[in-house]
Design a protein around this nucleic acid. Structure first.
Lengths: 157, 157
DNA sequence: CCGATTTAGTTTCATTTGTAACCAATGGCA
DNA sequence: TGCCATTGGTTACAAATGAAACTAAATCGG
């Protein structure tokens, strides 16, 4: 046992235990979950996570511009641009010049994109269901509320 | 309004709302938090997140091998190898051949590494504190328990 | 209407990350 | 003892990501 002189004995190591550190745990949790889900569609459909997010958003809100997609998915515009390019060349998304802005493009799922969406959405939902199976209904509601609050708090960090 | 024939009217889009999808929200949350914290030390100390994790773990548990560090931080061994290489060349970590295995190395913080740890740990703790300030004590306990359960559940996904 | 500024999206280049192949030391075990 | 499968760690190469510069269309001020 190392002498601690007359201090409190609190060293940084006592205060910061990585395994209990919330940011670290959130990162691990998020990675585990994303990887598990992506594993179920990535190779099979040749689809990356950013691409899938765009499909998901366009499925519900067709006609968004790239900028709007970027806002809705919280991806940056470069990521959106690249993913959209791949989706368009795979004929999963069509990009038409926006009616009243020649720079912007109006993005929509093609029938193939729709079909893909229809196939993957259930897989995603099912994964979420399996994850949440570990919690009771009440706990799910708690979790939901807590995550909302943390998301808001994290925005101001 | 589009006709829905005689089905239930539930399309994948109704079921999967990205903004409410837990895996997506966890990903956003984790990114926001990690970026906010990293912003406070990354440039100032020229330290990446993986490097920081290794420092944090070695601070509490000196003498671990690269493999053990990889397990403790849930990083893969390549990431550990690279980060350790940088840390060693920056003289923040020392790597000595392990006593009873010539392949393995025993990793410890140098005095400089210790000093860095002592400076960053409080920053990290403070960030976590600020994030958790959004929650009551009870809620923090709830969150902790929920995250534990989800981490376990996610492992089996 | 014309030039200056802003905005949508793309491209380029450097860095990071992931996967697989690899090297070297170890631990059976015949 | 001497071979072979395993394990700790690194290297090499490809793909993903991020920051900044860039193009082109739109808006604003005069």
């Amino acid at each position: 046992m190392r002498a601690e002189a007359k201090t409190t004995g609190k060293s940084p190591a006592d205060l910061l235990v990585l395994e209990r550190f919330l940011p670290y745990r959130l990162s691990i949790l998020s990675n585990r979950v994303s990887r598990a889900i992506a594993a179920r569609y990535a190779k099979a459909f040749n689809l990356t996570i950013p691409e899938w997010r765009i499909i998901a958003v366009l499925g519900r809100r067709p006609g968004l511009t790239a900028k709007e997609v970027a806002e809705a998915t919280e991806m940056d515009k470069v990521a959106v641009s690249r993913a959209v390019a791949k989706l368009v060349s795979a004929k999963r998304v069509s990009a038409d010049v926006h009616d009243d802005d020649g720079r912007a493009q109006s993005l929509t799922l093609t029938p193939q994109g729709e079909a893909l969406h229809a196939r993957i959405a259930p897989i995603a939902i099912e994964s979420e269901r399996r994850l949440l199976a570990a919690l009771s209904i009440t706990e799910r509601a708690q979790l939901d509320a807590l995550v909302d609050r943390l998301l808001a708090a994290a925005r101001q960090l």
